[in-house]
Design a protein around this nucleic acid. Sequence first.
DNA 1: AGATACATCACGATATATCGCTAGCGGTGG
DNA 2: CCACCGCTAGCGATATATCGTGATGTATCT
Lengths: 195, 195
Amino acid sequence: MHQFIHLHHHGAGPHSMGHGRGRRGRHGGPRAWGGPPGHRARRGDVRAALLVLLAEEPRNGYQLMQAIEERSDGAWRPSPGSVYPTLQQLEDEGLVTAVEHGGRRVFELTDAGRDDVAERPEDAPAPWDAFTSDVGQGARELMKLVRDIAAAAAQVVRAGDEQQVQQAREVLADAHRSLYRILAGDQPSDDDTHA
Amino acid sequence: MHQFIHLHHHGAGPHSMGHGRGRRGRHGGPRAWGGPPGHRARRGDVRAALLVLLAEEPRNGYQLMQAIEERSDGAWRPSPGSVYPTLQQLEDEGLVTAVEHGGRRVFELTDAGRDDVAERPEDAPAPWDAFTSDVGQGARELMKLVRDIAAAAAQVVRAGDEQQVQQAREVLADAHRSLYRILAGDQPSDDDTHA
DNA sequence: AGATACATCACGATATATCGCTAGCGGTGG
DNA sequence: CCACCGCTAGCGATATATCGTGATGTATCT
């Protein structure tokens, strides 16, 4: 019996996070960096993140995704569905150029791209900060515990006998119930409000 | 706070599973299906699975991976690293041909491929049966509980306050400890043997 | 028998690309 | 102010491809 559970971590965008960018148009030349303060980030600001990172050094698409994930402490990993089209768009706009190295595509800023990044305000938060600043340490540790439990359960499956698997099932069923009791604790307080 | 944990299920091969294929050579024409009974399957038998599925209908690579996963009840999803090279190999051997449909590559058996599959013994187990037959119901349910817990934890993160996150952490930390106590139960019995 | 050497192949990671869908923004009108 | 609409862009799924590693099988040697 050899099965493994592997967790993948997805971050949805900063729905309620208040670091702002204005609208990104697709018309004409490089966009302006300025925007009214207080506007929301539009999900992940993939474009800004790519430009900032490429200003540091040339990278391929996969490396860019990884770098954003690291910088956001795992809270945000932009999807290929956003990264590659954005890279293509930046290339079309002349801000980025793709160079083939050993069958792989490395992206680097053009002069126009560097000018664009140079216009970025010095004190602008990094595009991934919209994520990391609001990721609570508690939530992070909770998700780590989920991953630890998954690994432990996989180990029980690999190394344990039927009785141990059964015991593990009871432990996890109990934990599952407890989690929903915690969640249920949300709602009686609503009921109390009405009572 | 919007983070999601998503579980991906990986099946390693049937290390101890006793359905047999003989050696697969890379020389010359189509391989024979017969083999000495009792030989082990070599991890997942990707080659056989692909041939059997393509005998049913033409499919692309991704669909083949999905079909194997379904047929094995989720216990085995062969990786792209095995599927695409094997398809290429089968193509080189003239058993399979790739046809482009709308920018996508659909694979279908050639006449030689159909002859090859026709030589397959009628009573041979499906290549994915090596996985499903030995996947215990208990282990399956255990892994489902892990997924349920991950979903519940994500919900706590989304909808709960700091206190609830803390409570959930305690629940999961306790469950984690319990799982390792179950695993530890493996070893004292070994110590008892020596005592 | 066990140990060693070697070859093969699938896993998991790396890497690229596009599609379908809809979240979320900006603009407009009431 | 709010409601609605149109549009863009990112998510998640679909889809393809290859690399590095090591598990596994076979052959040979002791």
